[in-house]
Nucleic acid binder design. Sequence first.
DNA 1: GCCTGTTTAGCGATAC
DNA 2: GTATCGCTAAACAGGC
Length: 276
Amino acid sequence: MSKAKRFKVDRLEMYPKDEVQGSGPAPLDDCLTSLNWLQNFSILSADPERPSGPGCPSSQEQLFHESFDTDSPSSPAAGHTAATGMPQYLGSDSTVGPLFSRYPHIQMQPIPLVEVDYKTNPKAKPPHSHSSLIYMAMQASEQPKVTLSTIYKWIKENFCYYRHAEPTWQNSIRHTLSLNKRFKKVPRQKDEPDKGGFWKINPDHSDMCVNRLFRRKKRFQGYQDTASTSSVNEDMSPEQKTLSPTDSRGTTRSPETLLDLGPMATWTCYSLSSQR
DNA sequence: GCCTGTTTAGCGATAC
DNA sequence: GTATCGCTAAACAGGC
């Protein structure tokens, strides 16, 4: 199966069409336009005691919203938690059951709550865009400017995936730095050691982060566009299904594009029966 | 040779 | 439909 087709099927599995069109999660616009979550490196905190049921948003929805909610409690400081976020918060039967009871061909298998530790799990590709990773590295450095190697180092230290991945991601990082106006190059002075220049957040385009980073939030349209594709991606590993939803080329959906997958993106261990 | 930085091309997805 | 974004891949040049 092609990667593109696989991704479409992946999405199809996540969003039973009728449910998506119907009682999907509340609009995310308000809570997704701030970048504070990124600046604080706010990481989701899975709370099994979170209330659920009639009148309460589902665990997934609530968790999803709070992960981008500027008023929600922040996680520990930068450099410590960015790699331990995006837990695979599994819904209880009370939240998942009713939804999937309408789709008998989709079987949810309850598994324990899992928090993805991106710092130690080499298979868990961080759900951050490269620009987000760069931004986080810059923030974590607490320096006005950072070198490329510093960015590499921070990413590798905080995301195990990149310690084991092919170095092509570094090319992407460089490409992002060069092209993205959010970042500005600061030439190295002759008396400064090492090589290469410095990079800093471009204050002239800092608004771009706030205004555009979460622009992609019309998350269900894509599903509807691709819902007609119906084949089974049986060749995906549990990790692929569970960790970091990926796009058609295996690209991890960043937080902003993860919105496209919605709260159900954090659900896991679904399988398709032979009825499909 | 390696690292850094730039540029081009292409693809998929979303926003407008 | 077009613009924009994110990502990947590749090629190339310059500096160390």
